[in-house]
Design a binder for these strands. Sequence first.
RNA 1: CGGGGUGUGGCGCAGUCUGGCAGCGCGCUUGCUUUGGGAGCAAGAUGCCGGAGGUUCAAAUCCUCUCACCCCGACCA
Length: 572
Amino acid sequence: MRWSQTYIPTLREKQSEAELVSHQLLLRGGYIRKLSSGIYLYLPLMQRVIHKFSNIVREEMNRAGALEITMSVLCPAEIWQESGRYNTVGKEQMRLTDRHNHEMVLCGTHEETVTTLIRGEIKSYRQLPLNLYQIQVKFRDEIRPRFGLMRGREFIMKDAYSFDATEESFKESYQKMVDAYFRIFNRAGLDVVKVESDTGAMGGKAAHEFMFLVDTNAGEETILICQKCGYSANVEKAIFRDLEKPAAENELKEMETVDTPNASSIEEVTAFLKVDSRKLVKTLLYIADDKPIAALVRGDREVNEIKLKNSINAIELRMATPEEIEQHTGAPVGFSGPVGLKNIPIITDSLIMDLKNFVVGANAFEKHLVNVNMKRDFQPTKVVDITLAEADDGCPHCGNKLIAQKGIEVGNTFMLGTKYSEALGAKFLDDQGEEHPIIMGSYGIGITRTPQAALEKYYDEKGIIWPKNIAPYLVELIPISMDNSNQVETADKIYKMLIEANIDVLYDDRHERAGVKFNDADLVGIPIRITIGDKSLKQGKIEIKARCEKEFSLVDVDNTLEAVKQLTKKIK
RNA sequence: CGGGGUGUGGCGCAGUCUGGCAGCGCGCUUGCUUUGGGAGCAAGAUGCCGGAGGUUCAAAUCCUCUCACCCCGACCA
């Protein structure tokens, strides 16, 4: 492609709307433009990147035996009502009515649609297993779109759905997808880690996320990794072994009320009472589906709200306001405690089981209770793990210390079980003639998000450095001067040579000064640059350089193709 | 939804406090010169100052309402 024939509106100056480097680079490099909050237009270069990446995805999905289909973005609301998700997805689902006043939704995911398709088609175990996928637009009316393509309201996703008759068969299907995912991200030049994750609104039994590890603040998720045994999980999900157990005590002391003037925070109370924060129990009031609950965690720990939410099967969970705290406990913030709480479920973290003679708020202003003991002084409604795991906690499997890393979720896999097949009636007959719901899995990859995520890592102060397999073009051809017939003839010749070899070339044929072309080339980030200038052309040579390297090499004009092939092999 | 902020030419911004010809840099157009890392000179074009209403002789500027966008939080396939 000739630069003069395509549309690459690069921008010299920083764009104020973009915070992240990757977002900034896509705007400045002429890859995307914003139409409205969270809605982006893909310009020619971005379109090519999307094609490159989705082709990798398509090839690997096909190789894994999945079948490509396309399902409509628009979908009748009934099937979402049938699955029960209509009431739980929340406001991010775009809803509208058609001219017949029929309720419709724009899909953010397609479990309902694909299950509806399948229930009409699959009747026998002989038709299973089956895996259907599509690469298509999704809509989600995000509360707060941000970070460009990373969290948009409209985006492209590859979503696959597996259908199996037995658990064993499902495990194979799931593993095939996991293997395909590693191949896909590998080919795209991204190192990813697979982590355990919460199932969230998808429901189902278990889930994994594929995380691209980054150092920047774009890492929207924290993951915990054990470098010894390989355990890895999203913090939302991570469990751990407590390496900080306080000293054991046998004797149960008598509970007492003590004054704690000006001491409401954990730090203040521990300092005032001169006790270890691990001997304090924090009582936090939440409102779960409009009802108050108390969550108890050890003083040195934080609540994992996802674990808490899951432990009580709540749909909505939020912290209580200071007014609500006062209303339910009779004391201001900072003095809540489980003793004497009436009609409020007390969800107690399992770490507290090990504690004796601990300190809690007394539900009275500037007062705490010391030497409190579970069962004797209050009854926990439920004892369950609700503590947020942190770096340096012990790995749940081997006890080694966990390390924390930031990651961007680029793919996910869900073990859905029979949640959707039961709700929507997708059943088959087994070889005994018995009817069963189909076992399902669902597998997503962010097609537009992934390339941007890659840019959080692959860039320098000059611009983008695309991994070769998702770059819009492999080679950028730059004649220094378009007024020099020698250079132009050589460039034309090389352009033709590369095209015939099926290599994607961007030929910068603009009548611009060299500096402009070089700067644009660095910004746009094509992996290989070929420069044709008088200096080297005098010796019958051109200059070839990888975007990721500083040095260029001189190559005979006739050897250009070979040099491109060699360099391609060398780079990521 | 709560908190904070910004809307002025295609992009980045000044001007708003203290009302008085709508500006700067980049980009764009034309011409001449230049030509290996974002050229120089000259001449141009481009504004409903986000929108509506109000105050005033006079509003980008003051007041009221409204819309959009950005940041922090809640949310997240």
